[in-house]
Nucleic acid binder design. Structure first.
Lengths: 100, 100
DNA sequence: TCGGTATATCGCGATAGGCCGATATACAGT
DNA sequence: ACTGTATATCGGCCTATCGCGATATACCGA
């Protein structure tokens, strides 16, 4: 598994996407209850309300995070649940610490 | 001294600027000899040759790094010498490690 | 003060990114 | 099959960023 520092940093270069990543660290704290347990991830729609942005914009942000490998998603029925990809995040922090 | 995470990440979200920061870590390795010792910093003009970009573009990149607090500059005669600001860099790495 | 060099700033065209509403797709339940 | 809901994608608009050459500014040495 190799990470793309450039794509990751560009993904992080937007406050909303950093917020999203941060919120995913503690879903109970930042999101209202959902049908499925937070263990499988946070339902995409929850971010609409949290950010106040349109559904299409939120979808694009989540896609950007996913392309960078910072989150993974899982389809369950008609919903898409997102969770952090700790491996990539930690690998990024290590590598950026080295490169910088 | 407080750092602006958003400005820093945006500054880092360009490969050339990350390269510049990296090169400043070991000037002897990445730049040819210069009149003044590397301890005071690397002369701005050295980046023109290294990057192959125009002088105005390089100047803008250096200004971006400086606004973010990632480098400091020192005028000596008609030259401007840039060096890394380790305090800000380390503070950023710590904070991004927390936030992420 | 004048000419030369280093750097900063300006103005421009080109590209990328962000935001939205509208539409397309996917799935669930009836 | 049809309706409703969740998500993805599209098209358009706007702004930010990047790159450049040209110009302005700063400094030096003669």
């Amino acid at each position: 598994m190799s990470i793309d520092i450039d794509e990751i940093i560009k993904a992080l270069a937007h406050p909303v996407r950093r917020d999203m990543l941060h919120w995913l660290k503690d879903p109970e704290k930042y999101f209202v209850e959902q049908e499925h347990p937070f263990e499988i991830g946070v339902c995409a729609g929850k971010f609409d309300q949290r950010t106040g942005l349109s559904q299409s914009t939120v979808s694009a942000h989540l896609a950007t995070l996913q392309r960078a490998g910072l989150v993974t998603s899982q389809r369950v029925g008609q919903w898409n649940f997102f969770k952090r990809n700790e491996d990539t995040i930690q690998a990024f922090l290590r590598q950026i610490g080295d490169e910088l």
